[in-house]
Design a protein around this nucleic acid. Structure first.
Lengths: 132, 132
DNA sequence: GAGGGGCTTCAAGTACGCTTGAAGTTGAGA
DNA sequence: TCTCAACTTCAAGCGTACTTGAAGCCCCTC
């Protein structure tokens, strides 16, 4: 199963430990996954790749202890975050593409890149404070 | 400056230490940033938010030791990664939106969500192996 | 029945991106 | 002049997402 979905077995056990992946049936101690687990892991990986922490995923996928209203609020917030992320990714994409099309050849490669990024950033408000 | 861009001073020093942010002029030991540094930090944060590690950013922004060809290959790869990421984010967005529009009300909130995600994932090839 | 491959658990280790704490310096204001 | 806030360095700590290593169990084949 780990091989099929392209993750390490240790990662699957980690997801299980966190409660993200349901504990599968065991045959003499060994895990036997159902087909549906493949889909579920696919979802976990996709959400991970778009920046959802495993804890957030747990809440979002109903494994958490949220009521319907809390869940809705979380989902709305995540939706907004995704929109912002898509916009940022498109900005970055354009900047890189521009830099590729007309690169400096004197090894100072960044100016075009930095300029277009800066220009696009200037159109938007600055980041809110990050509180990690 | 940290206040203006919304990051901790320690983060700015960290970027400087990594060579991402040029060491600014000092007045009796204290850092005095130019206006352009604000833009640069904005770029760093945007790229960070779209999943570029600080090491990758360093390479991409020309602070690294890549020649033009290596830089082009890196940029091409990053472009492809961004496209994939945008697609994934859009998939996740649709799935969440769907789940919000017709939620289960018996506290098993995930089925709609999981179903649409699974359907969309099924259309695409599985992830390549991740080698962290 | 001995060996081997593949699983198991549990604890500890790793990489990244910072944050925090201790101890010291600097310049402005009372 | 004294004090105080705001900066400085350096080392150590932290959260997330895993990975790695040691020791053990299970089944299959030779």
């Amino acid at each position: 199963m780990a091989h099929r979905v392209g993750v390490a077995t240790s990662a699957l056990r980690y997801y299980e430990e966190l409660g993200l992946l349901p504990a599968p049936v065991r045959v003499s101690g060994q895990r036997r996954y159902q087909e549906s687990a493949v889909e579920l892991v696919g979802i976990i990986l996709l959400l991970r790749d778009v920046g959802f922490s495993l804890a957030e995923q747990k809440a979002l996928m109903g494994s958490g202890d949220l009521d319907l209203d809390e869940w809705r609020r979380l989902a709305q917030r995540k939706l907004a975050e995704l929109d912002e992320q898509i916009a940022k990714a498109q900005t970055a994409r354009e900047a890189i593409q521009h830099a590729l099309r007309c690169p400096h050849d004197d090894f100072t490669l960044c100016p075009n890149f930095a300029r277009i990024m800066a220009a696009r950033l200037a159109g938007r408000p600055l980041e809110e404070a990050h509180t990690h």
